[in-house]
């Protein structure tokens, strides 16, 4: 296991564990207001101090982890399910249909995700769901491209030709040969999209499009801290660091996986001389 993979796995594991833990237990009730004790500096009781309404910042951050992690995970699932399928099919079938599918997915790139999210809020109402869908839509063309690019050489490979000669159909080949051979590439891309998803979720909740109050979210904590920058800079620093660490964790995990799963690092074959009778 390489260092990046280990570091990335540790960070991502830690963030996910905290997010799960926060559903059951936090040091303080993250929603409990205590106006008398607002703007408290870090102390043994409040490791990261309290905010403008006297809420415990550490508890807010722990509870706030569920939003970015959950939303980006759901968005990656949307991207993988739609884009992955589209890419594999387009590469396998070829022709006009494939061309159209690729163009259509490229077309989505022209719409900034944020605009999609804003428009979705207007139709679906505010909430987590439209953040998931907006980021998910943006993941679709990414996975279409990646799945297409990765599966095209597989569809054209000798072993797929051999499977056809062996009388196997497109569905068998897609599931038994293509998917296992592009899984690594998709997994690596998924971790990268997860890190982008965390960033995007933070942006959306910063402008009020993600997790809705009173549930805490990192993006909105930053929004609220912005006007208090001069008096309580820690309120802006703590959630920002939480975002950076999470994104960094997913990025390291992605790069570590890319290295670990690189087929060029497979064990070298035996020399041919040994087959001589």
């Amino acid at each position: 296991m390489n260092a990046r993979l280990a570091a990335g796995a540790a960070i991502v594991g830690g963030v996910c564990a905290l997010a799960l833990l926060a559903l059951l237990w936090t040091p303080h009730d993250p929603l409990a207001l205590n106006v008398a004790g607002r703007f408290a500096p870090p102390s043994p009781a409040h490791w990261l101090g309290t905010d403008q309404l006297g809420r415990d910042v550490l508890s807010l951050i722990m509870r706030g982890a569920a939003g970015p992690v959950g939303v980006s995970l759901a968005a990656v699932c949307i991207g993988l399910a739609v884009g992955g399928t589209l890419g594999v099919l387009a590469a396998g079938r070829g022709g006009i249909g494939a061309h159209a599918a690729l163009r259509a997915s490229d077309f989505l790139f022209a719409f900034p995700a944020l605009l999609v999210a804003i428009l979705l809020r207007e139709t679906l109402g505010p909430g987590v769901l439209n953040a998931m869908v907006a980021i998910g839509i943006f993941n679709v063309p990414v996975f279409t491209r990646v799945a297409y690019g990765a599966s095209l050489p597989v569809w054209r490979s000798g072993y797929v030709a051999a499977a056809r000669v062996a009388g196997r159909g497109g569905a068998w080949i897609g599931v038994m040969h293509v998917l296992p051979n592009i899984a690594n590439t998709l997994i690596v891309q998924a971790t990268i999209q997860l890190s982008l998803g965390v960033l995007a979720e933070a942006s959306l909740s910063y402008i009020g499009l993600g997790v809705q109050p009173p549930q805490p979210s990192w993006g909105r904590m930053l929004y609220e801290a912005q006007t208090l920058l001069a008096i309580a800079p820690l309120l802006a620093i703590a959630p920002g660091l939480a975002i950076v660490v999470t994104v960094l964790g997913f990025n390291l995990l992605g790069e570590g996986l890319r290295q670990a799963l690189d087929p060029r690092r497979a064990t070298p074959p035996e020399p041919d001389a040994e087959t001589a009778p």
Partner: peptide
């Protein structure tokens, strides 16, 4: 660059203001 990619631009904006 790893660090730069992980930083949300609006947070960086706030830090720059600070």
């Amino acid at each position: 660059t790893q660090l730069g990619i992980a930083v949300p631009n609006f947070w960086l904006a706030m830090l720059l203001v600070l």
